[in-house]
């Protein structure tokens, strides 16, 4: 068994695992080979709806299905779900229809396709919609498990997955994984690192390096951005000197935004947000992008040290 995998594979596996539910319907927009819904299509073509390159249509077809008792799972690249934002807002979130959207290839980590394909705002925009659950799991196993939980989730959701392989963090069927509950991967008392998606493994790496420097950093996989696990954030803020949020996403409105909003109202705490600083990406390899945009392991360490060294 390989110890690295792409989270999008978890989505593909989840669809197959849920196939016994006769109400499950899968929708694609000519990116099934990329989002991995193609695996479901191969086995269950009669329950897979090809929408061609037509994301706006796909979202509302899914809404119609959901209103008729079906359980639609619709996927495309994260960036192209955004093309249908208003359809999602008015046709899915507003009537609170349980349509489950998966946006693959999220973040700058997606790489050399360049800025047009690198969604750095998806988590933020879907967070703004009432009724929406927003997730960004860190590996294939947690993606699979969380996606499967959506089958009995009675409101709409958006899940971002990533294109490239990253280290596996979980075992299959980890009992700690619940929608809306962050997972404390490593406890620590000096500083807390709250991360999501591909940045979780980087955060663990950073915590290990910090530990060598004598700094005790906690690491949380905040796979669900909405609803935010506020009690966990509160606990970390009470215990540690400060918090570092880490995401392959704009610092505006995503994980950093969510944590900042909560803390500033409920428990003012020193905070550093590692994320994309209000700019677009460009073509480059995944690791190069993280370096270029200052969201690499060394930037996480720097932010943690910043907090620890504060007077």
């Amino acid at each position: 068994m390989s110890n690295s995998a792409a989270s999008r594979d978890g989505y593909g596996h989840a669809l197959i695992s849920m196939s016994e539910d006769p109400k499950l319907v899968v929708l694609e927009a000519d990116l099934g080979k990329s989002t991995k819904s193609c695996w479901f299509r191969e086995k269950f073509p009669e329950r897979t709806i090809s929408c061609g390159i037509g994301e706006q249509n796909m979202m509302l077809v899914a809404a119609g299905l959901a209103s008729s008792g079906y359980k639609p799972f619709a996927s495309t690249f994260a960036i192209f779900t955004e093309r249908a934002f208003e359809q999602v807002r008015n046709g899915i979130a507003r009537p609170n229809l349980p349509v489950h959207i998966c946006g693959s290839h999220g973040g700058t980590h997606t790489g050399t396709d360049g800025s047009s394909a690198q969604s750095i705002e998806d988590l933020a925009i879907y967070r703004t919609l009432p009724n929406m659950t927003v997730m960004h799991p860190c590996d294939d196993y947690s993606t699979q498990q969380l996606t499967m939980k959506l089958l009995s989730h009675d409101s709409p959701s958006y899940t971002r997955t990533a294109r490239n392989k990253t280290p596996r963090i979980y075992e299959l069927n980890d009992s700690r994984l619940e929608i809306g509950k962050g997972v404390l991967l490593k406890s620590g008392s000096d500083v807390a690192i709250i991360a999501c998606g591909v940045m979780v493994s980087k955060s663990i790496e950073a915590a290990e390096k910090l530990s060598e420097m004598g700094i005790d950093a906690a690491v949380v996989d905040m796979h669900t951005l909405k609803p935010l696990d506020e009690s966990l954030v509160y606990e970390l803020a009470s215990k540690c000197k400060g918090i570092v949020t880490v995401e392959d996403h704009s610092v505006i409105g995503g994980l950093g935004g969510a944590v900042a909003e909560y803390l500033s109202e409920s428990k003012p705490t020193i905070l550093r947000r590692v994320g994309v600083r209000d700019r677009f990406g460009e073509s480059g390899q995944a690791e190069e992008m993280l370096q270029l945009l200052n969201i690499s392991t060394k930037d996480i360490i720097k932010s943690a040290l910043d907090i620890v060294k504060m007077e």
């Binding site: 396709d113 360049g114 800025s115 047009s116 394909a117 460009e282 073509s283 390899q285 190069e288 992008m289």
Partner: peptide, 25 residues
């Protein structure tokens, strides 16, 4: 497709002379 390149993965008017629209979507 190389970091900092004139020729981005998808055509980009900010990077390449002669490109009139940044496409990809």
């Amino acid at each position: 497709r190389v970091l900092g390149g004139v020729c981005q993965g998808h055509v980009d008017m900010k990077h390449t002379p002669g490109v009139d629209f940044s496409a990809g979507s």
